[in-house]
């Protein structure tokens, strides 16, 4: 699980774009996709789920 030493030149995709970028690297290289993940996951699992549970509490009579 260790990287080979790849300098910036070695780590760069080939200029001809014929070197396929691995899907995981494509995800990690897209900050706006990461932004979506980073906002959507806590928004759904924490904020929205939490508010829905509170909203479902019956009102006291």
């Amino acid at each position: 699980m260790v990287d080979q030493d790849n300098s910036p030149q070695q780590g760069a995709p080939a200029d001809g774009d014929d070197e396929r970028v691995p899907p995981m690297q494509a995800i990690l290289d897209n900050p706006f996709l990461l932004l979506f993940i980073g906002v959507a996951v806590p928004a759904v699992f924490y904020t929205i789920w939490g508010i829905m549970e509170i909203a479902a509490i019956p009102i006291a009579k």
């Binding site: 699980m1 260790v2 990287d3 080979q4 030493d5 300098s7 910036p8 070695q10 780590g11």
Partner: peptide, 10 residues
């Protein structure tokens, strides 16, 4: 700091 790569040893 501005480059890439790992230490390649464990």
């Amino acid at each position: 700091i501005a480059g890439h790569g790992g230490e390649a040893t464990l």
